[in-house]
Design a protein around this nucleic acid. Structure first.
Lengths: 234, 234
DNA sequence: TAGCTGTAAGATGTCTGACATCTAACATTT
DNA sequence: AAATGTTAGATGTCAGACATCTTACAGCTA
């Protein structure tokens, strides 16, 4: 076990203490010497851990003065913010906000893609929908999820906007676990197939607002599914 | 001069070489010893520089093997991706894509805010619009920009979605310079005042789709302004 | 007294050299 | 041919030292 490097462990533990509220925004974290004593590592290891948090704009290091915690809205790491926002009973609210964010990016990308997608990519979309249908009939959840992801990735790329893809990548990592859960429900699979079919047809028509609307309906359904799941969970 | 630390300098130079294509995605960068020789710094300095790039998912370090460049779509730093996307003649295209991204986030946040914004925040929006109008009449560009930014920040916060704010922060830094330029044109100021008035009224009505539409028109105008500026520049 | 200055403490920045551990390729042995 | 040992090269970690910056405070001066 313990596949992580010491630097990663120290950085994680320090981030945990920050998220737990031990060091509020604007306050300073313990000095490098103090931390190296507490974690029983060398000062260089602590420094490298700090550097990783500084690169994510979680900490600000000021030479001669100390190291300070930045306010949450300046953090550059979606994952770190997610950890902080999921503290206590806020996990459900954080999940909803993530879907809201995904909805903005995917509907926006879909609208852009309508004017830019190639004919071959449109055909590929229908192929993915067909794959979803086939996987649904033989109850192959893994294949269903794979086709689903490929469908959305294709639209992302077709939007020809690099920054959307960059912002979406961490979202992808965070959401894929939950997507596998919801995709296991047959009824949800059927809904999803219909939505994907509509999206593909809208993109084929090259109508931006119709494409955006089709994707928006899909996102709305995903949000509803999540809310039902979260509400059911004890 | 040279206010930056050695670590920052080394990290910047290494990132420049990566962006210049010297080390394509998937290939390895020189070893720590080789880099410390080339930059005439110690190995520890190189290591800390690497750690900052690793924290931004620009590099992947594999113990015993080496350090490798990640593909652009896995980079977690919007600024770094922007630098890479602005290479050569792509600066105009990158600017347009940034506005497209901003449009997604701001229209999405505005739609959410419509259902969540408080009465006092709505009043504050009108105050900001009034401040923009006053600044416009006395030709105070700085005050105009400040009220403009406060207006948008308020909507961001009213959306009550932490993640939107997090993703928007780097965009803010990148775009504020250009916004100061466009806001210096009186005609553009007048357009902006009208748009902001419409947005505030839409939010006051608590109608999500109307609010989204109002913000979308504003973003569309901003995009047009940018295109005109970029096209005029030699 | 008001203001400047030097000193000291504590923090981060950097360097040097060493050893540990992992990986991959090659050589050796069975 | 397969398993094993060796070695080179890479990153991971450590220890101690010195440099430099910030701040506070005591002491000196006008």
């Amino acid at each position: 076990m313990a596949r992580k490097s010491l630097v990663g462990v120290v950085a994680d533990e320090l981030l945990d203490r920050i998220i737990a509220g031990e060091f509020p925004a604007g306050s300073s974290v313990p000095g490098e010497l103090e931390l190296s004593a507490k974690h029983e590592v060398s000062r260089m290891t602590v420094r490298e851990a700090m550097k990783t948090l500084e690169a994510q704009r979680i900490l600000s290091v000021e030479r001669g003065r100390g190291t300070f915690v930045n306010p949450l809205n300046r953090w550059a790491s979606l994952e770190a913010v997610l950890r902080a926002a999921s503290e206590g009973q806020n996990e459900a609210a954080a999940s909803v906000q993530l879907i809201e964010l995904r909805r903005m990016l995917e509907t926006g990308a879909c609208e852009l893609a309508a004017a830019r997608i190639s004919d071959t990519d449109v055909q590929a979309l229908f192929v993915h929908v067909a794959a979803m249908r086939a996987a649904h009939e033989v109850n192959d959840v893994a294949a269903f999820v794979e086709a689903d992801l490929a469908f959305h990735d294709l639209i992302l790329r077709a939007s020809e906007n690099v920054f959307v893809a960059v912002l979406f990548a961490p979202l992808h990592r965070v959401l894929e676990k939950r997507r596998a859960e919801t995709s296991a429900v047959p009824a949800i699979q059927e809904h999803a197939i219909g939505h994907h079919q509509n999206i593909a047809e809208a993109l084929e028509s090259r109508d931006p607002s119709r494409s955006r609307e089709a994707m928006d309906l899909h996102m709305q359904q995903t949000l509803d599914d999540l809310k039902n799941l979260v509400l059911e969970a004890p």
